[in-house]
Amino acid sequence: MVHESLAATNAVVTLDVALPGIVWGWIITMNMWAKSIGTGVIFMLFYLLKKYPNEAGAYRLPVTVISIVFIHMFLFFTVIDLHQIFRFWHIFFHPHFTSAIAIGSFLATGFVGLLFLLAFAIFIKKDDELFDKVLLWTTVLAIPVTLYTAALMAQSTARELWQMPTESAQMILAATLSGSAVILLMDTFLNKLSDAAKRDMGIILAFSALSAFILYMAELVFGPMKAEEVAAVLAYVTNGGEYQAMFWIGQVTAFIVPFVLVTLSIVNNNQNILKLAALSAVAGLWVVKHVWLVIPQLLSMS
């Protein structure tokens, strides 16, 4: 990677050791993707129960199950990415609270506890009132659980591309994007939501997709004007960089296609198009997250 080099200088590394390649790879992508879904469906259930309490009631149990499944996927991929898997307990017994990883571990544990309380309320006690009370606190806790990965990326001082204000917005948008998409996909089987509720989910999906796309484009265009390392990293997704195709496939699949399809669905009053938009968003989000995770790691730090 040559960024600051001058033709006149012609500086070339002629002897160096082999450097570590990508350290956080697809396992961490799975971690972020699954967490977005696990917390996103909780946000959506909270919204639906407030606005459409009668029809959304049938979603209490299935959403709880989906959230538990995806949060455990997130935890599974978190743990298997550790090089010392069986020392995971060190985080709880030797926590270092300046670390987003340590704080996030406690937050995620609390979130899992609340999810099981939700399952207890709806599956064992069959108590909707208790469920809704616990759901309020689960929704509140879902916000920092979603955000802590952004804090971790911000603490990764070496990776200039990952900036905290942008990453936190992207994490929340990823949760609302994937949460609304998964609710729309679930409705294919449950078929309980009214057209108005589905339209609301579609609008949230489209708004999240558009906002996230604008943020990525803003970083792509203006990031290089602020920092040389950002410019060097973004060269991997521009001008024939090795991740350029993957980057644009992700942007189109996760954001542009869902936004266009939701717009078409609302204009034509066709609910089936929403399912296609949802499927595209969920698949595309993985690709978007993966590219953004990997490209800063391609840059030599020394």
Binding site: M1, V2, H3, E4, S5, T9, A11, V12, V13, T14, L15, D16, A18, L19, P20, G21, I22, V23, G25, E228, E229, A232, L299, S300, M301, S302
Partner: peptide
């Protein structure tokens, strides 16, 4: 500054410069 020099992957004057897996 590592950005100020070109570090090509492959065989150089003395050794092979590359990135290692995890």
């Amino acid at each position: 500054n590592p950005l100020a020099s070109f570090r090509a992957e492959g065989h150089s004057l003395f050794n092979e410069m590359k990135h290692l897996p995890i």
